[in-house]
Design a protein around this nucleic acid. Structure first.
Lengths: 385, 385
DNA sequence: TCTATAGGGTCAAAGGTCTG
DNA sequence: ACAGACCTTTGACCCTATAG
């Protein structure tokens, strides 16, 4: 710090010898980067710009020339090394960068893209949350049309139709989660019908869904037919302990064995409680996270759809996953977010398993014999031939 | 200075014998430091990076591996010398009084002190990569014992037994991926047997597995019985295009319809090509990422294991997932890492679907009738009753 | 005692990382 | 995207213990 040498390039205090000559940190790094990236600069003037501490960044061409002139040695550069990871200790008060990134992204967004708009995670998650809210309103209403699967999938979308929603989607007085009583077969039946109806409307709100062939639409909805209702039922159930799922009309089930139901369905009950309800409660999944997770679960490329549709679905769900992660980091901080995110996304395998098992012939047959299916349900589960 | 020996690690001129072999100053110091600080490195590629004078710093994992391979002897490191007895500035004691004090201070510190803690993801991922490498060596060997599932799961683990591995796990000359020919039923059968054998040994290397009940062990392995072999087959297949999977003995399958096989198996072939091979190739999944993904796939709490085991498995796979994420961020940068990570982890749903479908009665029956199962395979797929 | 060898330590100068 | 402060790693060079 006393009689230090000066940088031969810019006359700043040198930080030692670099590439053969005394030089400062800035000129050292500038030289390395320039040689490594083989950058070529152009001088705006006469190739004799002054280079000193105050204006060393003004002309990169002349700065690099000066580096060479005072004897910096290119051959002193080495081959790339193994990356060494983070070098700075973690800082605590850093919620701002997320914010900045998100506002940057939204200001960069191009207005003409419409199919998969690149918005900030806030916009994406917000869109999903709004969709989820509407879907739940419809679920809590008493509206339940009788229609075929084809009618359901090809008719006008209802969820984003404010006139329809205003008129028919007000909450039924029966759906206030009070008057608890144990669930019966008829109640199961009623809520399956409602949840399947809402599922078809939910599906139609995805732009990506509108562009699919009819075959792909039915396959995707069919694949989601068990798990999406389960997610609705579990997430919206008020907390009566880890063993109880309550439906909006106050009917509930718990671990009580129901001997009149097939073994497969009793087993599924335990799966739902252990593998969905419990993790949701433990992780304190919030509404935005649930909305995104449900969309990721719905957009499952494992359904028997065309390869193009698989690819499109996958892109969409990866995008949502990215935004969900950004949101969680902003909300929980890095460490906690990685844990919660990993845990939540890995629940996808459980969802996948349930979706798959619901197709097992034995299970379906049980189900079919014990619940009087409507023709809609038969189409949904078995296909229309 | 001319007839000097060369460093066995990097071919630079050796500065004498160090730790048992002729080696250069750099490799000598690198080896000492790595052992002393117990550093664990992770290879960014496939653990076979070249190591020579010009690029010896490019991959620290492979450099250290090479050190060990050419015979550097860890036991030649001496116990920590008495730092106080070491008088370093006998010649020029006046040069840097400030420095001297500070370095004395630092030399009084315990050598175990973690000034730069090695990032934990390196240890975790490295462990998984080493495990994967051994498993693949066993897979490429010709060792294939006849034993029951119980014997397989309860016998002594082989993968981390260096004596066994040295003796029996050398690569079979038949398993060199050349001599391509279309696969037959017998070949399928052979590779299923091999992959199932390796799977049982792979499973036993997980500490978490050792602590499970026998029932949980079989369920977990059973749940992995289809997907883990698929991952092995796909990842290790040399690239002959997106339609071809090559086994180590040169047998291959592609999209050719095989009419002698049941429809379910032909369908599965397409699934493997479209949903596993293609994404792996597109994402350029590297060895570390594959090792971690395979472990996450194996540790699937959806298997029919006890609730305690489910919870333990889930914790473990969430931990691996976190470390995988950290690794990918370090390797790819934030933006790219989030995309690749999301895409890779979401492939878990596909794995789950395959695992589940493999249990479908119809599918299994097809499979069973067309491939002569050994009793081991029957146990694995159907259980032992 | 002397000398060659092979341990360990040092620090200038490489390269990598991250924030503004 | 670039600049440069700040971080880690490398290895030529040094000191020291020990065997012959």
């Amino acid at each position: 710090m006393e009689n230090k040498e000066l940088c031969l390039v810019c006359q700043d205090f040198s930080s030692g010898y670099h590439y053969g000559i005394p030089s400062c940190n800035g000129c050292k790094t500038f030289f390395r980067r320039t040689v490594m990236k083989k950058q070529k600069f152009v001088c705006q003037f006469d190739q004799n710009c002054p280079v000193d501490k105050s204006i060393r960044c003004a002309c990169r061409f002349c700065r690099f020339e000066k580096c060479l002139k005072v004897g910096m040695d290119q051959s002193a550069l080495q081959a790339s090394r193994d990356p060494i990871g983070y070098t700075k200790r973690t800082k605590k008060p850093e919620r701002r960068p997320m914010k900045e990134i998100s506002s940057d992204e939204s200001s960069n967004e191009s207005p003409e893209r419409q199919i998969t708009p690149t918005r900030s995670f806030e916009n994406t998650l917000n869109l999903l949350a709004v969709r989820e809210k509407s879907a739940n309103e419809l679920r809590l209403s008493s509206y339940l049309p009788k229609r075929s699967l084809k009618q359901a999938l090809c008719s006008k979308p209802l969820l984003n139709d404010p006139i329809f929603m205003n008129k028919h989607a007000s909450r039924s007085p029966r759906h206030n989660y009070d008057n608890l009583r144990f669930i019966t077969q008829d109640d199961y039946h009623y809520w399956h019908e409602r949840d399947w109806f809402v599922l078809t409307e939910y599906a139609k709100t995805f732009n990506i869904f509108k562009n699919m062939s009819y075959h792909d639409k039915t396959e995707l909805v069919r694949h989601a037919a068990i798990v999406i209702p389960v997610l609705n039922q579990v997430y919206n159930s008020p907390d009566h302990g880890l063993d109880t799922v309550v439906f909006p009309d106050g009917t509930y089930y718990d671990r009580t064995h129901e001997p009149t139901r097939p073994a497969g369905l009793n087993r599924k009950k335990y799966q739902v409680l252990d593998l969905v309800l419990k993790p949701f409660r433990e992780m304190e999944v919030n509404f935005n996270e649930f909305s995104a997770f449900k969309a990721i679960t719905f957009l499952n490329p494992d359904a028997d759809v065309s390869l193009e549709t698989k690819a499109a679905i996958n892109e969409e769900r990866v995008t949502i996953t990215k935004h969900l992660y950004s949101y969680m980091v902003q909300k929980d901080g890095l460490e906690k977010a990685i844990y919660r995110f990993g845990r939540l996304i890995l629940m996808g395998t459980t969802m996948s398993k349930m979706a798959c098992e619901s197709k097992e012939a034995v299970w379906i047959a049980d189900f079919f014999e014990n619940i009087g299916f409507t023709s809609f349900a038969k189409e949904l589960i078995f296909g229309d031939n």
